[in-house]
Simulated scan of single mutants.
Amino acid sequence: MEPNDSALPLVFLHGVRVSGTMWHPVMEAVDAGSGHRRMVAPDLPGHGRRRGERFTIDAAVDAVAEAIDELGGRALLVGLSAGGYVSIATAARHPGRVAGVLALGCTGVPRGVYASVFRQQFHLGARYPEVAEWLSVRGFRRTLSARAAEAMTAGGLSCEVMGDVADAITGLDPLGLLAQYPGPVWLVNGARDPFRGDERAFLAACRDGRLAVWPGLGHLTTLSDPRALARTVLDVTAAVEHQRCAAV
């Protein structure tokens, strides 16, 4: 079936060391419920088919901008964890291309002891990628549904890039970036997500922001029910499209 060209396109942004395949179950559920909307889940530098490239925020933002342009020049960004931080950075740099942001599991300000521990852990993973990969696969299988865990690893794991990602994220000012973006932002966290510590500050930084906390879920388990997450994506998309129509 041909894609619905009138519907707002979606760009899904994956987390560290995995690839765009992470989003495939959610994208399939979105596709089933939205009349075949145009969407893509690009691999960010250093991940998946771009393994071996250097990850920087600039390079990641450029990759997202290219994906948006391929879909017509304007899209809603959906990002989890590192992908959420990249979505915020892209929105600040290219507000005209970003119709809205749905950012999951990325409301921690990378500073102080938190940033130091974060960088140490990720650099350790990059130094011992085989161990980090084994631990990652085991963790995915223990915390996610079988289908979601398989999607996490289907594009391969690039644990050697973890140090670069940690350096890039800890160098960000996400609150300042959010303040630059005039469009709508949805911040979504699992109640058990350790990265939600600064969620109120993130919400306050948004010019047009909303915050949702899902009970019982952690950092990655928002992916365990693709249909539930797809419904949220479609609800956000509908709200952005309604806002756009009301402004015309």
Rank of each mutant, 00 (worst) to 15 (best):
L10R: 05
P25L: 03
C206K: 03
V30N: 00
P9L: 04
L175I: 05
D31I: 01
T221W: 01
A204Q: 11
F140H: 12
A166P: 03
D208L: 09
L234D: 09
C206Y: 00
G171L: 03
D58L: 00
D62F: 10
A29Y: 01
S81N: 08
L187T: 06
P182L: 12
A239V: 06
D193C: 08
Y85K: 00
L76C: 06
A29T: 01
G171H: 02
A228P: 12
V137E: 00
L13Y: 08
H36I: 02
R54E: 11
H219N: 05
A191W: 02
L157V: 05
L234K: 00
V131D: 04
R111Q: 15
V248W: 03
T21G: 13
L124W: 14
P110A: 01
M27L: 10
S136R: 13
P25K: 06
Y114K: 05
G105M: 02
G105K: 09
N4Y: 00
L77M: 10
T107I: 07
T143R: 14
R111E: 15
M27F: 02
D198K: 04
L10T: 02
G216Q: 13
A166V: 01
G15D: 15
P194I: 06
D164Q: 11
S158Q: 08
P226F: 00
W23D: 10
T232E: 14
Y181D: 08
S136M: 11
C245K: 11
E53Q: 15
M162S: 15
R231H: 12
V233W: 04
R210Q: 13
A115Y: 07
R196K: 09
G96S: 12
G176Y: 05
E53H: 02
L124Q: 14
A60T: 02
L157T: 07
G46V: 09
H94T: 14
V109W: 08
A246T: 14
G197S: 09
E199W: 14
G33T: 01
I68F: 04
D193T: 05
E150S: 15
G20R: 05
V188D: 07
A191K: 05
D69V: 13
